[in-house]
């Protein structure tokens, strides 16, 4: 299979998984009664995975497409703006910290930051749309809550990625050049992850 097609297939699978996760999560009730609007952000697992394993560009594609396609499967168009802003803000934060830290950060940290900026992005978007400064009062709670949720997501992503690397299941989707990158990433990942 050509490099492009296999990568495309890989991404397609990832995006569809992200999409399903996103949708299922939207059906669940709010998990924290004292913090309204706090979501786990399970779909971010896939964005994070794509960034660390495949690349930055692909990570952005996963994040954006996840939100856009969600409108086709039932999420109302009006919420697209909020989810898109959140996903993009999370992506930017995660990409920046990953590249700037040169291996000094683990999945936990990236995920917490991603969760935090996802919330900030959504709040700012909502504030602009509703023309209300008062929505900012939600921020302190949401930001603090990004610690536990980010922790959970980070763990999930870490273990999933580790397992996938160990099983070499990704190899079939990557050609020689891709496999080299895979090996280096795997080694980097062992260094990067929680010891």
């Amino acid at each position: 299979m050509s490099k492009r097609v296999s990568k495309l297939t890989l991404l397609a699978i990832i995006i569809s998984m992200a999409l399903v996760t996103h949708y299922i999560e939207s059906l669940l009730p709010s998990l924290f009664p004292f913090a309204p609007g706090v979501k786990l952000g399970l779909a971010n697992i896939f964005t994070l995975f794509t960034i660390t394993v495949i690349g930055y560009k692909e990570g952005l594609v996963v994040a954006v497409l996840r939100c856009v396609l969600a409108t086709f499967i039932g999420t109302p168009l009006s919420t697209l703006l909020f989810s898109l802003t959140g996903a993009i803000c999370a992506y930017i934060a995660m990409s920046l910290v990953l590249s700037l830290s040169r291996g000094g950060v683990s999945y936990i940290g990236i995920s917490v930051l991603g969760s935090c900026f996802h919330n900030i992005g959504q709040i700012v978007a909502a504030g602009l749309i509703l023309n209300s400064v008062y929505i900012v009062s939600y921020l302190p709670v949401l930001i603090i809550m990004s610690l536990p949720t980010g922790l959970f997501i980070g763990y999930c992503t870490y273990y999933a990625t580790k397992a996938l690397y160990a099983s070499r299941a990704l190899c079939q989707f990557l050609d020689a050049g891709g496999q080299n990158k895979f090996e280096t990433n795997y080694n980097k990942l062992k260094l990067r992850s929680k010891a």
């Binding site: 291996g103 936990i108 940290g109 010891a195």
Partner: peptide, 20 residues
Amino acid sequence: MKKWDYIIFVFIAVLSVACF
């Protein structure tokens, strides 16, 4: 847990307090 993780945790806590 790595160095930057702690930095991020502190950053989050500070950000939350600042917003508050």
